[in-house]
Structure formats: C-alpha cells, structure tokens
Nucleic acid binder design. Structure first.
Lengths: 122, 122
DNA sequence: ACAACATATGAATATATGTTCATATGTTAG
DNA sequence: CTAACATATGAACATATATTCATATGTTGT
C-alpha cells in the first residue's frame, strides 16, 4: 500500500478531505490487483461466456456440443474457450478429435452462481 | 427452459450428442438471464470501477475524494459512477454541493471480495 | 446577483472486444 | 494415402467501452 503519512494539520474545509483520502488510499488495492480482479470479472461479463460456463457447471462438454447448446457457431465458441482456457477458468482434455471442456475453478462456479442469484433476487 | 423432448433414438455416433445437448439445453439459462448476469460482471470487469467499488466497501465517499483516492479525473469517475448507479450497485445521496456514494448491494460486496480472494489464492 | 465550487453530461477519440469467414491443424476410418 | 471430421486460429469488421475536454447544472457564501 501507500507509505505516505496522513497530515492531520491540513485544512479540512476542502472538498478533498485529506485525512479520508489518505486513509482510503492506504486501504485501496494496487493498480495491478485491480487489473487482475477486473480481468476475471471481464471474462464473466459476456453472455456467451456466461452460457458456456453455466453449461459446464453441470457436466463436461465437447466444443461442438457447447456450440449446439448455446446456439452459436463453432468458431465463436472456440475463440471464447481459448480466453477461458488462458485464464484457467476451464480445463480441457483432448480425446481423439474431440476436446472436452470442464470448469477448472471452484471460485468461478461460486462466482457464477452468486451472479445468477443476484439477478434472481431483485 | 426448453420444452422440446429428448429423442433417445437418434444415432449416437455423431459429434453432436443429441441426448446430452438436449438435457444441457433444458438446464441452461435463458438468453435474457445470461445477458443480465453478464451485465453485472461487466460492471465489475473494469479496473477503475473495481477500485471505486473497493474504496466504497470501507466507507462512504464523495466524488472528488474517490477521484483523489483512485487517482483519476473527476469526469472519468463521474461517468463510471453513473454506470454503477444505474445498475444500483452504488447508492448516492446529495449533501449540498457534494454527492456521497456508498455500496448499495451486499451481493456486490461479496462478489468483489470473492474476486479479490480469487486472485490472491493462486 | 455573482463567484467559486462539486458534480454531471455530451461529444469526440482511441482502444478493446465479439463474431464471422476462411483456412490450418490434427485425428480417425476406410 | 485420402476423405471426413473436430477443433483452433488469423484477419477483417462492426460494435462497445473508457477517458478526456468542454461545458452545463445546481449549490453555497458574500
């Protein structure tokens, strides 16, 4: 976090409240952490990927089955799976011609179900 | 969900496994739900908004303090706050010239902390 | 009424993102 | 080896998004 100290003596009449800002800065996450957190959520922030991940919460699926389930082209699905794979949100194993995908991350299962809960309860 | 029945008799040799697809489709979320879920995560999927929300988990802050804490322009912050406000992720109250923002949603607090946990544990 | 201030917002711009199309890679069956 | 197939990927395109700048709105104190 920040090492800068909080000056108690600065005039409090300003809009920018130095004390609060100083404390809040110390408690804030770093740019890098914010970036990483955003990265995860960004991946969950697309309807196609939500559908893919939600389908994978139930069972392992191969690419063309995913495409059929969510009614999208094979290529689009494959591109999205690559993103999910790179971020290690899904695992895949090759079996002959086919590639079987599954969730690789209990955090993601939990985040996803919380997200679904969230929209259902309001 | 889907009402279409699962034909048991269709040839299983195809890549597209009709049974599985049929069952998976019945269990899949609707386009509309996927859209809504994605909408929430998309809002959490930007580093600026992550920083804003994280700062607001600790205490209520006014716009210019938020700008100072996350080291961004007032305008940029205000634009992002509008998005968060529209999605009811933050609440705001006006006090004279100033607008005080706070988290409006325990779900969001929980999602956010899970997201932060997620990047810390790997 | 006026000046100073906090916030909001529209327009413009640069960048990121998702899908499609065409094609490449790699596997299996004949 | 070849054809059929499942998947992956690069390029192109359209769309969405974030930030900045300029300015509008609304409040407070004089």
């Amino acid at each position: 976090m920040q090492t800068k100290e909080c000056p108690e003596d600065i005039c409090e009449q300003l809009c920018e409240h130095p004390q609060i800002i100083c404390i809040a800065k110390k408690e804030s996450i770093s740019d890098h952490e914010a970036q990483q957190v955003a990265e995860i959520f960004k991946l969950l922030g697309d309807p196609t990927r939500v559908k893919i991940l939600q389908a994978l919460t139930k069972r392992e699926l191969c690419v063309c089955d995913i495409a059929a389930v969510i009614e999208m082209g094979q290529s689009a699905v494959s591109h999205q799976l690559r993103l999910l794979r790179n971020a290690r949100l899904v695992r895949y194993r090759r079996e002959g011609k086919m590639a079987w995908y599954s969730l690789d991350d209990e955090h993601v299962r939990s985040l996803l179900s919380q997200g679904i809960d969230h929209i259902k309860h309001r």
